[in-house]
């Protein structure tokens, strides 16, 4: 490979010479990598706007009902929330290590790090499920069964708070589930030895996605669990 920018390529996906992962319509690996990175970042921009809608709604209602929202956030379990925050931050580390291992060509380390990430992700979802169960048991799920244990004057805006809580954390959890799905594909492909130090774009792009989902939680945690807890 004298010039990586001008690799020969063959018919429909299968290069005549050159590595098998250069798709037929790209001129070079550099071009292919640029396209993937730009595409992933653009996708994350759409994700920011997607969550942005909910964050906007949250901000407006928090502005309208500050006392009720502060009161409602006292019904969150901060210990579980903090644990989950820690779990996700560590999972970001293991994910970064997986990407690093792939880039450094240490193919044996990829799968353990991916598995650790998946384990932590599952732990997060497990803890989240416990929290949900508790909330539902205490009639904090909005709708006809909602019953607010705090001062009744706050009951209705508090229901709004829990509507937002379930919508935002639910959407986040859905992203976690999708992330776990992507990671399991990566594990399977890694076992087949698809990724090399030279080409591991899927791992890198999945890493970006995973970090993004973690960052969303980093915003959700203080907004839903912490702000206003100590206001009286």
């Amino acid at each position: 490979m004298a010039d990586p920018r001008r690799l020969p390529h063959g018919e429909d996906g299968g290069p005549a010479t050159g590595p098998g992962y250069l798709q037929h319509h790209f001129e070079s690996l550099v071009q292919q990598k640029d396209a993937s990175s730009l595409g992933m970042w653009l996708f994350l921009v759409t994700e920011i706007l997607f969550f942005g809608g909910l964050f906007l709604v949250y901000t407006i209602y928090r502005w309208s009902y500050p006392l009720a929202f502060a009161d409602a956030s006292r019904h969150m379990d901060v210990r579980l929330g903090t644990t989950n925050t820690a779990v996700l931050i560590i999972s970001s580390l293991t994910m970064a290590m997986a990407v690093h291992s792939a880039a450094a060509g240490r193919r044996r380390l990829i799968i353990p790090f991916l598995a650790a990430t998946m384990l932590l992700g599952t732990t997060f979802l497990g803890i989240k499920a416990i929290e949900y169960t508790e909330h539902i048991r205490h009639h904090l799920f909005p709708g006809p069964w909602f019953h607010y244990p705090g001062p009744q004057i706050h009951a209705r805006p508090a229901e709004l708070f829990f509507s937002l809580y379930f919508a935002m954390t639910g959407l986040h959890a859905l992203h976690m589930v999708i992330g776990l799905g992507i990671l399991s594909v990566l594990v399977v492909q890694s076992r087949r030895g698809r990724y090399t130090g030279q080409w591991h774009t899927p791992i890198e792009m999945s890493g970006l996605y995973w970090h993004f989902v973690d960052i969303v939680w980093i915003f959700l945690f203080p907004l839903l669990y912490l702000i206003g807890r100590h206001v009286h």
């Binding site: 969550f51 709604v57 209602y61 909005p142 805006p157 709004l160 509507s163 379930f166 919508a167």
Partner: peptide, 23 residues
């Protein structure tokens, strides 16, 4: 995400735009 909010409001009775809850 806006249509998602309408959907969950209709299915799960989350009151994101419901004036009765102050929405």
């Amino acid at each position: 995400v806006t249509l998602l909010m309408v959907g969950v409001e209709r299915i799960f009775h989350l009151g994101l735009f419901d004036p009765a809850l102050g929405g």
